[in-house]
Computed example of a mutant assay.
Amino acid sequence: MSGLTRMFKKEWPLHIMLLPGIILVLIFSYIPMAGIMMAFQKYIPNKGLFGSPFIGLKNFRLLMEYPDIGRIFFNTIFIAVMKITAGLIVPITIAILLNELRKEWVKRTFQTLVYLPHFLSWVLLSGILIDILSPSSGILNQFLGLLGIEPIFFLGSNSWFPYVMVISDVWKEFGFGTIVYLAALTNINPSLYEAADIDGAGRIKQTLHITLPGMLPIIILMLTLNIGNVLNAGFDQIFNLYSPPVYESADIIDTFVYRMGIQQAQFGFATAVGLLKSIVSFILISCSYVLAYRVANYRIF
């Protein structure tokens, strides 16, 4: 205890600095968790959280019996898995290609340009995408018309909508991932490339046997963190771009919760859906952490 007391006296300014952040987390993250009770209630706003009648697992049974719930979960996982996959492959590829550039100003300029969309909100980008992909006046369909191809309603077609979401999300976010992987490349010892060059290894073999293994820890870290988001297919993006004609392929868990909870005032049912999603996400990220440790001997914490 005396050792702990001395350590606390030595580090108390750091603990004081942490205090505002801890208070904010308690207020905005932990205290609102009391609302989980609504998942087991027939929530009535005028009776409040503690006055609404408890109905046990009825909301969860209604969820399992909901006719479109299978399609909603499929849409969520399908879009999220495609985003995670493309969100790993594209930034890694661009980072490796940028690392091969010898002119530093070219590398910095391109890096800045691809990073800029990360700062734009989906409210703004959705307007841009709607204009670009418009079947009547969009620049993309005008280009396709020059090639003799009929206009495509990208945002109104169930066949095209999920892929438009993936491509636009990758375009917006791959610049941020590229910076992360470029930082990982700086930790690779240059002497490894020199030794490989002396042994006659070309750039492709150096990439396969030096660059990618050197990036492996950060790749595993990013994949582990992303697996926990496999049920987060991007509410902001889809909410601003989808419409009733594409509900079949675009409706995900978060948009479903929004409609049930906010538009139809089924607060208990919507909370049950969100709670189930959070439990599954927690299990997935826990499993991914265990796999990262056992397969690659990598610890996040």
Rank of each mutant, 00 (worst) to 15 (best):
M1G: 14
F8K: 01
K10E: 14
E11Q: 14
P20G: 04
P20E: 09
G21E: 01
I23E: 02
L24E: 00
V25H: 01
L26S: 00
M33W: 00
I44W: 10
I44Q: 12
L49A: 05
F50T: 08
F50E: 01
F50Y: 10
G51S: 04
I55N: 09
K58V: 00
L62D: 15
I69N: 11
R71K: 13
I72S: 05
F73L: 06
F73N: 01
F78H: 09
A80V: 07
V81R: 07
L88Q: 12
L88W: 09
T93M: 12
L98D: 02
K103G: 02
K107H: 05
L113G: 05
V114R: 01
V114E: 03
S121W: 07
L124E: 06
L124P: 03
L125I: 15
D131P: 00
L140F: 14
G145Y: 15
L147M: 15
L155S: 08
G156E: 12
S157F: 05
F161M: 09
P162I: 01
V166P: 02
W171T: 08
F176L: 05
I179V: 13
L185C: 00
T186S: 12
Y193N: 01
A196M: 02
R203L: 13
I204F: 15
T211P: 04
P213Q: 08
G214H: 08
P217R: 05
P217Y: 07
N229E: 08
V230W: 02
F235D: 04
F235W: 04
D236S: 06
L241Q: 07
P244W: 14
E248W: 02
D254N: 10
T255M: 13
R259V: 11
G261R: 03
Q263W: 04
Q263N: 12
Q264N: 13
F267E: 06
G274Y: 00
S281L: 01
R294C: 00
A296K: 04
Y298P: 02
R299G: 12
